[in-house]
């Protein structure tokens, strides 16, 4: 299946070496007939998507619908049970693919290295991959910190940062990689509305300025409908809808209407005798 996707959809591309200060060409992602099971539990069933180079693609859905699992398959962190994911025709789990395309993932909780300072967190990728001199790496790190307004946090430890700052440091760390594909796992979770809007602006700006392909997993309806080029809705591990934000607003599927416009029913009989 993987080979099939590679041959049919994408041409193999020459390796693009990572260089300081260069914006790389965005990449396309294809997910075909993807299924994922953990033991007897089926989490994803027959998901097929094609994400165009340079677009912001948001995956929405209720908790437990398999959004983050799908993102982990796209990032190559887990192998699918069936089907395949291809990034410009290449398997994302292959270290050569990561090396070629610089795939960055912004984790829900940041996943910053607690034993390293903010600067060292950001400098880790270029240092480990020997990209540039120490001075060039410092420039690159400071530029990323400036874009995210984090210059004051450069010498802090991640444990000293607020939730919003951790998210921004995680985005800055991804930015230092100069990625062609940037994956966000719940970038606005646990943030106040103002910080959520800031993160949304950052994601949209990165796409405009750096033409990076962005895949965002989120519960945040406003974020999804504002910044996305297209939105996919997952329900119980299946792809329920795939359209642009305007199309999604017009969608009359009851489950989508309920998901996008939840109502608080103060007289719900389900919770009537809770105190008893």
């Amino acid at each position: 299946m993987k080979k099939h996707i590679q041959k049919e959809r994408f041409q193999s591309e020459p390796r693009q070496p990572a260089t300081i200060g260069q914006t790389r060409t965005p990449v396309g992602v294809e997910v075909r007939n993807l299924g994922k099971k953990y033991g007897a539990q089926t989490v994803l069933t027959d998901i097929s998507l094609k994400i165009e180079p340079g677009e912001i693609f948001t995956i929405m859905g209720p908790s437990g619908s398999g959004k983050s699992v799908l993102l982990r398959q796209i990032a190559g962190l887990e192998a699918p049970t069936s089907g395949a994911v291809a990034i410009n025709g290449h398997n994302p789990a292959d270290p050569d693919t990561r090396d070629r395309f610089a795939i960055a993932l912004v984790f829900q909780a940041g996943a910053l290295f607690n034993s390293l300072s903010v600067y060292d967190n950001l400098a880790l990728y270029p240092l480990e991959h020997r990209i540039g001199t120490r001075a060039q790496i410092r420039d690159r790190v400071m530029r990323a910190l400036k874009i995210l307004s984090l210059e004051g946090a450069v010498n802090k430890n991640p444990s000293e940062l607020s939730g919003g700052m951790k998210k921004r440091v995680a985005i800055a760390r991804a930015l230092v990689m100069e990625p062609q594909l940037l994956l966000y796992d719940e970038p606005t979770s646990e943030l106040d509305p103002v910080m959520s809007a800031t993160i949304g602006e950052i994601i949209a700006t990165l796409k405009q300025e750096y033409q990076v392909t962005s895949i965002v997993v989120s519960h945040d309806r406003d974020l999804a409908l504002t910044i996305s080029n297209r939105v996919a809705i997952l329900m119980r591990g299946k792809l329920l809808s795939l359209s642009d934000p305007a199309g999604l607003r017009r969608d009359t599927t009851p489950e989508i209407i309920d998901f996008l416009n939840p109502k608080i029913d103060l007289r719900n009989p389900r919770y009537k005798n809770m105190a008893a």
């Binding site: 982990r72 990561r98 984790f107 996943a111 910053l112 290295f113 880790l124 990728y125 991959h129």
Partner: peptide, 10 residues
């Protein structure tokens, strides 16, 4: 954090 290392190809 280990997943973060893997995505950074470290």
């Amino acid at each position: 954090e280990v997943d973060a290392l893997v995505t950074m190809n470290i």
